[in-house]
Design a protein around this nucleic acid. Structure first.
Lengths: 227, 227
DNA sequence: GATTGTCAAATCGTCCCACAATCCTATACC
DNA sequence: GGTATAGGATTGTGGGACGATTTGACAATC
């Protein structure tokens, strides 16, 4: 259940909302609330977090929610309101389907040093988070790694697709009881993939590694994810 | 410039708006207005088509517009309102980038008879439209063909991505002066691709054909598309 | 004649309130 | 114990208000 205190508290933490347009930043905040798990999958998004946390009117919050519905982070049930999306097992399969399509193809794309750097930065961010036992950070870094990988394709559209798909995947983790350490064993594999592709420049091998990675992650996830 | 008469006229044509939720159907109508070219790229979407054409309040129309911004059909300029998106040349390149990613991969996917049927239905719809000199119909059928192709991948997410990308491509055509007959020469190639893939079952050959198709279409488009 | 400055009208972004439709809950009844 | 029902809460949408911003015209200045 959601209490007003919670949002008053968060609002105090994040400060008031200030920028030119109001809807986008409001949507950003809501998105973060969801991605970081402050709003659990299945949980209702009350109609007036707007006033309490975001400091925007009901209409405005609705616009923001509508955007997040479009991003598959929320669902809307008529006359019942907005809820944090609860991905099904099929959704998980589909997410990995898309990831295979994009990420494996990215292995075959060319790359420049800037792109390679972003990949390695993500790898290192993950390892650093691991050393600090910052599990949320590990998850974020992992997302970043895979976004960096798909960014090698150099398509703005694909980047946003990938961001959305990975955000949706976060919902899956928040819907599981114990997902904290899920990504830990995958960190070394991230590095291996990065080095195979970007240093050794053995794309086919990297593709095989990534295929294994995705297969393993999907299976492991589906093993514990409730229907 | 937009006149009220125009929307009154369209409203009479399309009838009043009726369904459970109101925003989605309103967005659907706006989307059609754009896809069918009644609203030209670059044109402003007045803040109150809502009342005049959609029969919804300003707030509601805003929500609908916001959705279409998310679909890349509209852009929003602060304090100036919503405009039909005007794709750049880079956008065109990126659209084809995504299409290659998806459609070429679809050549390698398996398929069932239902999927194959949808492809051939689209091919035939195109040929029929051609025989009736219905150029708009040819364009629609072509969209349908490529959606059917990418649907072979069997991913809900990819289907919607593809729909969006193709809708965006329509903007490109509406932004050109003379795009009527653009797709005519591509109809036989659609059939050839379909038969190579689904009847002869020569996926590599189909992939080559489709690669050629996409390369040609992109080049031909960029040749005439203004910067 | 071109640039700049000013001002009014139009439009936009947002908030606020109203009200019907719907859902939720708890109480009463069988 | 289960079902019906009434009342309250919440949602979806309409419509208006108001400040902020843009736009376009017109005057002032270089």
């Amino acid at each position: 259940m959601i209490t007003s205190d919670r949002f008053a508290e968060l609002r105090k933490l994040h400060g008031p909302l200030e920028r030119d347009s109001v809807v986008e930043p409001a949507a950003d905040r809501l998105r973060n609330l969801i991605i970081e798990g402050h709003l659990q999958p299945g949980e209702k998004v009350p109609d007036d977090i707007g006033k309490e946390y975001l400091g925007v009117a009901r209409n405005t919050q609705r616009e923001a929610c509508r955007m997040l519905v479009h991003e598959r982070l929320l669902t809307q049930q008529l006359n019942r309101g907005f809820f944090v999306r609860m991905p099904t097992r099929e959704d998980v399969g589909d997410v990995f389907h898309v990831r295979r399509l994009i990420e494996l193809q990215a292995m075959r794309a060319g790359f420049d040093t800037a792109g390679a750097n972003r990949v390695f930065e993500a790898v290192e961010a993950g390892e650093e988070a691991k050393s600090e036992l910052d599990f949320a950070g590990v998850g974020t870094a992992n997302m970043r790694f895979h976004r960096a990988i798909s960014a090698l394709l150099g398509s703005e559209r694909i980047n946003t697709m990938m961001s959305q798909v990975l955000a949706e995947l976060r919902l899956v983790f928040h819907a599981m009881s114990d997902a904290r350490e899920f990504y830990l064993p995958y960190l070394p594999r991230n590095r291996e993939i990065a080095e195979t592709l970007l240093v050794k420049r053995d794309a086919p091998a990297a593709e095989r590694l990534l295929t294994q990675y995705l297969d393993d992650a999907e299976r492991q996830l589906l093993d514990v994810y409730p229907g």
